[in-house]
Design a protein around this nucleic acid. Sequence first.
DNA 1: CCGGATCCAGGAGGATACTG
DNA 2: CAGTATCCTCCTGGATCCGG
Lengths: 101, 101
Amino acid sequence: MEKFCPLEYTLNFIKSKWVILIIRELSFGTCRFNELEKRIAGISQKVLTSNLRFLEENKLVERTVYPVVPPKVEYSLTDLGKSLKPILDQMSDWGVKNYGK
Amino acid sequence: MEKFCPLEYTLNFIKSKWVILIIRELSFGTCRFNELEKRIAGISQKVLTSNLRFLEENKLVERTVYPVVPPKVEYSLTDLGKSLKPILDQMSDWGVKNYGK
DNA sequence: CCGGATCCAGGAGGATACTG
DNA sequence: CAGTATCCTCCTGGATCCGG
């Protein structure tokens, strides 16, 4: 049996390039699927979908479906998701400061 | 051409489960290859080697070879490597606080 | 003691086409 | 608009064996 490692636990949520980009976009506010796809350059529909599912399962992101035609689905960060933001900000700061060293 | 993303840049260094464990071990002080292998449960020689090479290439870890028989090689964190520690600590804190939510 | 060389499995993610 | 369904490629990392 593996010992629980909080560091590894957290890493599992943010180790994906796409996940952190999604969290950053959603930190600006609620956003529709299509809007996310446009804002995150290079992401495919499949990858966006699977990453959003993953984030939803882990309660970092909330999904709201409006039963209209055409479909409308909105995504937003939960409080738990928002609580990751300081970590991402710190990582971003480190990148700015140490790029190219 | 891709735009530079500091967040993604930093993530590249710490997204590996093994890398963060190695950095954490080395944050306690200089360590030999064999010692690292024993302390990091479950890591294989190949993976430990390749991760250390990666960290060395990116100047996060320093490698010192003593030309003796049997071979002796010591690894330690550079200042750049040490500067990642606060980020790892913050991630660890988040894991402790939010595990199981 | 410290690796390098080789082979292999699993998962992330890209490309493309299709649908309620 | 918001996905599903397929197929395919690359990379991480596990297992094992060999060498200075």
